[in-house]
Computed example of a mutant assay.
Amino acid sequence: MFSDAEAAALYDVINPWDPARFPEAGFCTELVMAAGAVLDLGCGTGSMLHHARALGHTGRLVGLDPDQGMLDRARRRTDIEWVHGVAADAAWAGEFDLATMTSNAFQCLITDDELRASLTAIRTSLRDGGRFVFGTRHPQARAWENWNPSKAFDIEGAAGRPLRMWHEVESIVGDVVTFTETTAERDDTVLRVDRASLRFLDVPALASFLTEAGFTVEDQYGDWHRGPVTEAGREIITIARPS
């Protein structure tokens, strides 16, 4: 009742890549525009790389994502390389100046093995002096406590279709939260239910995985304005480089 293509188009409505409005977009766009070759892991609909090319980026841009519907939408631009797969599938060696995981995509790496394989592949893909930037939700903020039907919100789809969306937590096991995202008509007639799991790692846990994979943390921030990580912070933004 609500296709993958419609879901991908709706994602762009909810999450526009606009550096003037969203600090994450501004932060990452600055890094992308300064890098000659960029690998965007979990690129989704490709909006960050689309924006970079529109701004005049002339180097190599590669987007990788496991969601075919998202990639189909990303492929509206043919001057960017699009690859179907997960981070652990990254098979490049020393080809990129910058690797990115935006919109908390890093949290989709659930198991220890998946994290290790992904970080190893990302490190291998970077040139000497390259950097890996990603953001995660800080577990201390307990963002999942707001993921419930009482927080439903109304939105218009890409074609102006009136919709309602909400999230609902199914389980919390250790540092992994599993939840559903429901897309419905305004009368709450359900059109689509998507299920996902996210892992919430704190600063020491992130550092441990990065070190094991051969990374050194270059900078770490508590928000996209480059503020410090604090006890009340909601984000952990990390810039790492191969050791």
Rank of each mutant, 00 (worst) to 15 (best):
D89G: 12
G94A: 04
V86P: 01
A87M: 11
W82H: 02
T100Q: 03
T78R: 14
T100F: 10
D113C: 11
I80M: 00
D112K: 12
D112A: 12
M101L: 08
E114R: 12
F106K: 04
W82D: 01
W92C: 10
E114A: 13
A90D: 08
W82S: 02
W82M: 02
A88E: 15
D79S: 09
E81W: 01
T78C: 13
A87I: 11
D89C: 06
E95L: 03
V83P: 01
F96D: 00
T111G: 08
S103A: 15
A91E: 10
W92Y: 13
I80H: 01
G94E: 00
I80F: 00
V86W: 03
A90G: 06
W82A: 03
E81C: 05
T102A: 13
T78N: 11
D79P: 10
C108L: 14
A88Y: 08
T100R: 06
D97N: 03
D112N: 14
A90M: 12
M101H: 08
I80R: 02
L115H: 06
F106D: 07
W82P: 04
A93L: 14
A105L: 05
Q107P: 09
G85E: 01
G94H: 02
A91P: 12
L98H: 04
A90R: 02
A91M: 13
E81M: 01
F96S: 01
D89F: 03
A93C: 13
A91Y: 08
A90F: 02
F96Y: 03
I80S: 00
D79N: 09
L115R: 08
A99N: 09
W82L: 01
E95W: 00
F96I: 02
C108P: 10
W92T: 14
T102S: 14
L98M: 11
D113R: 15
E114F: 05
L115I: 09
N104C: 09
G85K: 01
T100D: 01
M101C: 10
E81G: 01
V83S: 01
A99K: 08
E95V: 04
A91R: 12
D112Q: 02
G94Q: 01
D89M: 04
E95R: 11
A88D: 14
E81K: 00
D89K: 07
A93S: 13
V86H: 02
T78Y: 05
L98P: 07
V86D: 06
D113F: 08
V86S: 10
L98V: 05
D89V: 06
A88C: 12
A99C: 05
V83F: 00
N104T: 04
I80Y: 04
T78E: 14
M101F: 06
I80D: 00
S103W: 09
M101D: 10
L98K: 06
E81H: 00
T102G: 15
A105I: 10
H84G: 05
C108Y: 15
D113I: 09
N104F: 07
E81F: 02
A105V: 14
Q107N: 08
A90I: 09
T78D: 13
H84C: 06
E114Y: 06
I110F: 04
